[in-house]
Design a binder for these strands. Sequence first.
DNA 1: ACTCCCTATCGAAGCGCTTCGACAGACTAT
DNA 2: ATAGTCTGTCGAAGCGCTTCGATAGGGAGT
Lengths: 335, 335
Amino acid sequence: MVTLAEVAQHAGVSASTVSYVLSGKRSISTTTRQRVEQSIRELGYHPNAGARALASSRSNIIALMVPLRTDMYVPVMMEIAIAVATTARTHGYDVLLLTGEEGPDAVRRVTGSGLADAMILMDVELDDERLPLLRGTDQPSVLIGLPADTTGLTCVDLDFRATGALCVEHLAMLGHRDIAVIGEAPAVYERHTGFAERTLDGLRSRAQELGVRLLHRPCEGGYDAMAVTLARILDERPGTTGFVVQNESAVEPLLALLRQQGRAVPEDVSVVAICPDQVATQASVRLTSVAIPAQEMGRNAVERLVAKLDGRGSDEVVLITPELTVRASTGPVPA
Amino acid sequence: MVTLAEVAQHAGVSASTVSYVLSGKRSISTTTRQRVEQSIRELGYHPNAGARALASSRSNIIALMVPLRTDMYVPVMMEIAIAVATTARTHGYDVLLLTGEEGPDAVRRVTGSGLADAMILMDVELDDERLPLLRGTDQPSVLIGLPADTTGLTCVDLDFRATGALCVEHLAMLGHRDIAVIGEAPAVYERHTGFAERTLDGLRSRAQELGVRLLHRPCEGGYDAMAVTLARILDERPGTTGFVVQNESAVEPLLALLRQQGRAVPEDVSVVAICPDQVATQASVRLTSVAIPAQEMGRNAVERLVAKLDGRGSDEVVLITPELTVRASTGPVPA
DNA sequence: ACTCCCTATCGAAGCGCTTCGACAGACTAT
DNA sequence: ATAGTCTGTCGAAGCGCTTCGATAGGGAGT
């Protein structure tokens, strides 16, 4: 392992000079700088992360806490995680992957040990038990998601309330008066995940404003669960002509079932999905959808975090404005 | 930040004693141990990761390099990543998330800086450019996937050759003589990803042995691409009665298209998928499939890595034996 | 020629921990 | 009793880096 001292000796300067060349915190003459850089290259020097962290109290690591559950909106999570990792690298940070498993303890551990300089939390519940810990520490953090109380926190999220409203508006504008919502799995609501509840909120209040009838049913992903849910919906509200789907893994089953029952999309019924664009365009019907901007959320979260670490930036809630893209799955209500 | 020294003072012992209590590397009297543990709890002490890494030359971090591409078998990747993270934690390791973006440089950086003690590489190509670096370092590593040359490497993977063979066997046994393979996206073959080529290998050689005709077509995911591919296949080989699908995101589109064309599964055509069980059971037809044991692969990789770090374990290739589960998508060839 | 101020560099301290060797005291073996 | 052996604890060195204060030398200003 090549050390700073060896580089210094090789370049004929002191260790501190090499350090300053690396960090740029003091001015160095061009000739010296070049000599040092040359030595670094020749020796293949890489600064030791531990020593750096110890001396500077900065690890240059961002912790990312992803949900343990692998049964939920997986592609979105993955996309966010990758966006976080690549964005972090462009700012000189690496990413430590924590699973929700440890829960609040992970926050304590990371904060206490100086393993990471900051953290990003995903899958935030409305009243998340990790939040008090975050508030009680001076370690910067950003949430992807929106808890009930955001005081003292920085959050990045799609505006799911507006998303819900947007879906209803679109369908209402096309004349639909009876709308069914295929929600996330029951467990998602039970643990009060912010995005699911907010979407529902937006859907409901806009429906009421527009005088549209709304039926919400949670739904596990998959074909069988969707079949049961759809049957129940059509049983309770036979006049349903519009669907809003939030659970990605219910999208394709729903389309298949509707087809099977002879209900044409979009001639007989309209379907709006809340999902990444890729899912919307790859479905068997090109779906009118509100995109979940996973990449942007991940990138944004990192940038806000880096700003905080640099002493810029402050606590604030960033709600990304949803955009609805009309594709081939929605149309006017049948005469 | 509470330090070791403060704990020592609080407990009335020396710093080294506290250290030994923590590491258990020397015997400590019960009374002293308890007093120290008490102090640790009272003060809320967490050892500083950087200092530890510096002093012990061990970071207790495992680097996980995931592919940058988010367009391929995402659920499998995610599941592996989560399995890696949770398994690593049970052995006292944290996981650093690297994306493929940096390529070989990431290997150099991590190895050189001592950021991680070991690494796990996913999405290995047959002739991966990171391999020479791994061979040239004494840092332990495990590949999830199988390159062409495995000398000096430890690999964990599903035996995709056997997987391919198994799929053909199953269909052949049911009487199918004309089998079409829906492969991964063309790009996957172009960069010579091990698992895709090996599967194809297994499919082809077993088909030849059994005298079965095999047609392989790469396919991007999604409905449109699948429609084109299917049309081409049925055009070239109208008598095709068996399908093997490797691209997860082509599964549901294929089923929908077959249904749409009036080809019943499994009465008219049989479909075998290579995918996680969850996908197989949630599809519109419960799919006969060979499972991709993502969790097991992740766990296994970590355990092998930890064994290496502990000085046990050696280079070897672990090929997990594939298992085919018969569900509702395959049946005897129609009379 | 003198001070004053930069700029470029160096030396040394110290970050918080691990680990090695030393050693006091309690036991066992002779 | 004496030497030998453990067991439990301590002190100190050192891991590789950052950073602070000091300093030498070169210009600019007077």
